[in-house]
Design a protein around this nucleic acid. Structure first.
Lengths: 354, 354
DNA sequence: ATGGGTTACTAAACCGCTATAGTCAGCAGG
DNA sequence: CCTGCTGACTATAGCGGTTTAGTAACCCAT
C-alpha cells in the first residue's frame, strides 16, 4: 500500500545492510566489507568512518548472507542423544551448554541444538547440518567404541571436537578428554582405605567408552588390590534401571559394603532402594556417585561424588572447536579438567560385621 | 592442485545444489525449486522425476541460501535466563527443549539456544538474532510483570510465543499459558481437606508472573478458607535459598503443618532441612512441590507434586510459534496442558497435636 | 484463422555479503 | 614523456536458493 519504510506502526522495521552503510559513508559496499572485516583496501580514516556508522546504525551481519558467500555459518552444533527422561535430570548437559555459551559470548557465533533419539538420528542430523551449511563444526559427546558418528564426521569433513575419555588417535578430530580410569582408581583406593573389600558398580550403557574404562578399572583394581568381590552391572542410565541394579547387588548372599554409581540419577535411585530394603547409609553400605550435581548434595545423606567442572569442560571444548575451525591441520587432543573426590555423608569406614 | 571433486581422499566432498539436480533432470533450476517446494509450474511427472533425483543425491537445502532469498532463517530461538546453578538441576529446560525438538522433527527448522545472564543480555540476544536474521521467531519463558523483553520483541516485530501463566493481552504475541492460580488452588484444597490450617509457601523470584499468581492464590485461599496462618517467602530458586526459607518457616513458634515449594530444588532442599531439624515427613509436616521431576520421585519420602507435561508444553509452544510464523495476524493465546496432583509419600493427614 | 486462456516451462533478477578483477590518480625511474 | 607500480577505491561476479516476468506450445471457442 504505502512504502513500508515510512509507514509508522508497521511491526517489523527494515534491517540495516552494508548498502545502507555504504550510502551513508559515500563509498562502495566493497569498501564497507573491507572495513568491517579488517581487510586491506581502505584508508585508516575511511575505515574508522565506516565502522562508526556501522556502530551508530547498530548493524549486524546477515548471518545467512555471510554463510552463503562462502565463509562461515557462524554456528556450532550440539546433538544430545540420551533417553529423554535422563536428559532432564542430569545437570551434565545444561552445565556443558552453559560452558559452551561462555566460550561463545563475544564471538558472533551461535549454537544449534538438537535432540536425537538414536545414533542414526544423530548422524542424519550431522549430515543435514553439513549439507545445509547450518553449522561450522560440532561437539560430539559420549564417544562409543568404533563410533560410527566419527566415521561420518570424518568423511564429510565437518570439524569436530569430541568430549571423551582418552585422546583421539592421530589424524582424527581432537578430543577433550577426562581420565575416567584414573578417577575410578581414586574412588577405589579411597574405598579400599576405608576397609571396603566388596564393591558393586552400577554402570552406564556398556557401549559407551567411559563405561568400558570404568568397568575395566574396577576389574583391574579387584585383581591387584585383592578385593573379595566386585561386580559391574550396566544400565541405560535410567532411575528404574539404577534401582533394579541396586536391588540385585543388595540381594547378594553376602552383599557389597560399597556401591559406585555412574551418575547421580542412578545413585539417588539406589539410595531410595537402600531405604526400601532397610540398609542404612553409610553404616551398612557406602555409596559414591560420578557426576556431581546439586541433587547429590541435596539428598540425605548427601552423596560422596566425583566432582568435575562440567561448565569448564564445555567452555574448553567449545574453545578447542573454535580453534579447530581456524586451523588447517588437526589440533592435538587435550586433557580436560580433573575429577576430584568430594566426600560427603554417604561413605564411611566399613563396619565390623558380626 | 587437482580438481577437488575428483580427488579421492579429500576430506570435504562438494555439497549438492539444485543446479546439480537441474542438470541431471534436464530442466532449469526454477523448475527444480518449484518441484521441491510443492509449487505449481511443473507437471506431475517432472516433479516426481526431480524429487527422486533429489532423494538419490541426498540433497538438502542450503539453509543460508534459503534464508537469504526466502526471508526465512529456518530456525527458532530460545534464550535461557536463570542462575546457572539452577539451570542444571531443574528438568524444566531440558524437558521444554525435548518438546520443542519433537515439534521440529520433520520440518527443516532448527533451534538456536543461548544462555543469558540478565534481562538486558537476553534482549541484546533477541536484537542480534533479529538483525542477523538468525531466527524466525523466539520462545520467551518466565514472563515478568511489565516485561521489557516483550516490548522489544514487539517493536522489532520478531514473532514470539510466550510460555506464561495467563493469556496475553490482545494484539500482542500469543501466550501458551498454564493456570497457576488454579493449580495452586488444587493443592490448597487438598491440603485443607487433609486438615492443614497452617500452610507455608517457599516461592520463586517475586518478579516472575507465576510467582505472583501463586502467592496471590494462597492469600485468597487463606482468606476464604479461614486458614489459621499462611506465609509466602520468595527465593531465587536456589537450593540455599530454599533451605533458608524452610528453616525460617520451621522456626516459627507454631510451625506450619504443610509447605508448598515452587519447584523441586527448593523442595528437595527443604526436605533436607526437615531431616536436619528432626521434623518427620509426612508425620510432622507435609510437603508439596510444583514442577514434577524425576528427582521428586527419587527422594525419600517421594514428593507429592503438581505434575505437568513439560515436554508437551514445549511441543505445543513450538507448534504455536510455527503457526504464528505462517500467520499474518496475531494468533490467540492457548491454555497449555493441565497441572495435576501426583500424591506421593510426602503428604498426610495432619496429626492431632497435643 | 484469430484471439484468449492455460500449462509447463525458462531466463533473469534478487537476497546481503565476500572476493576478485579493474580503474584511476599519483608518483618514481629511465 | 612514457612505463610501471602502488594505494584506495569501485564494479561485478558469484554463493544457492526463490520468485517474477516472460515465452512457446497447446487447446478451445468464436
Amino acid at each position: 500500500m504505502t512504502d513500508p519504510d515510512t509507514t509508522p506502526g508497521t511491526a517489523a522495521g527494515r534491517r540495516i545492510t552494508i548498502t545502507d552503510i555504504a550510502a551513508r559513508a559515500g563509498v562502495s559496499t566493497s569498501a564497507v566489507s573491507f572495513a568491517l572485516n579488517d581487510k586491506p583496501g581502505v584508508s585508516p580514516e575511511t575505515r574508522e568512518r565506516i565502522l562508526s556508522i556501522a556502530r551508530d546504525l547498530r548493524w549486524r551481519p546477515h548471518s545467512a548472507a555471510r554463510a552463503l558467500s562462502g565463509s562461515r555459518a557462524g554456528s556450532l552444533g550440539l546433538v544430545l542423544n540420551r533417553p529423554a527422561r535422563t536428559l532432564g535430570t542430569e545437570s551434565f548437559f545444561s552445565d556443558l551448554i552453559s560452558g559452551i555459551q561462555i566460550a561463545l559470548t563475544g564471538t558472533h557465533i551461535g549454537m544449534n541444538l538438537t535432540v536425537a533419539r538414536s545414533v542414526q538420528d544423530e548422524i542424519d542430523t550431522y549430515r543435514d547440518w553439513w549439507s545445509g551449511h547450518r553449522v561450522d563444526g560440532v561437539l560430539v559427546i559420549d564417544p562409543r567404541t568404533d563410533d560410527p558418528r566419527l566415521d561420518v564426521l570424518e568423511s564429510i569433513g565437518l570439524p569436530t571436537v569430541v568430549v571423551g575419555s582418552h585422546p583421539s588417535p592421530p589424524n582424527s578430530w581432537p578430543t577433550l578428554w577426562l581420565d575416567d580410569a584414573d578417577a575410578t582408581g581414586t574412588v577405589l583406593r579411597y574405598l579400599h582405605a576405608l576397609g571396603h573389600r566388596r564393591i558393586g558398580h552400577v554402570a552406564g550403557p556398556a557401549d559407551l567408552e567411559h563405561t568400558a574404562l570404568r568397568v575395566e578399572a574396577l576389574q583391574e583394581f579387584a585383581h591387584t588390590a585383592d578385593l573379595q568381590w566386585s561386580q559391574s552391572l550396566p544400565t541405560d542410565y535410567s532411575a528404574d534401571a539404577g534401582a533394579a541394579a541396586t536391588r540385585t547387588l543388595l540381594s547378594q548372599r553376602e552383599r557389597p559394603s560399597a556401591i559406585i554409581f555412574d551418575n547421580d540419577i542412578l545413585a539417588v535411585a539406589g539410595l531410595g532402594v537402600t531405604a526400601e530394603m532397610g540398609v542404612a547409609v553409610p553404616r551398612d553400605i557406602s555409596l559414591v556417585s560420578f557426576d556431581d550435581s546439586t541433587m547429590a548434595q541435596l539428598v540425605r545423606p548427601a552423596l560422596t561424588t566425583l566432582t568435575r567442572d562440567t561448565v569448564g569442560l564445555g567452555e574448553r571444548a567449545a574453545r578447542l572447536l573454535l580453534a579447530q575451525l581456524d586451523s588447517a591441520e588437526r589440533l592435538p587432543s587435550q586433557a580436560g579438567p580433573p575429577l576430584t573426590l568430594s566426600v560427603r555423608a554417604s561413605t564411611a569406614r566399613v563396619a565390623h560385621s558380626g
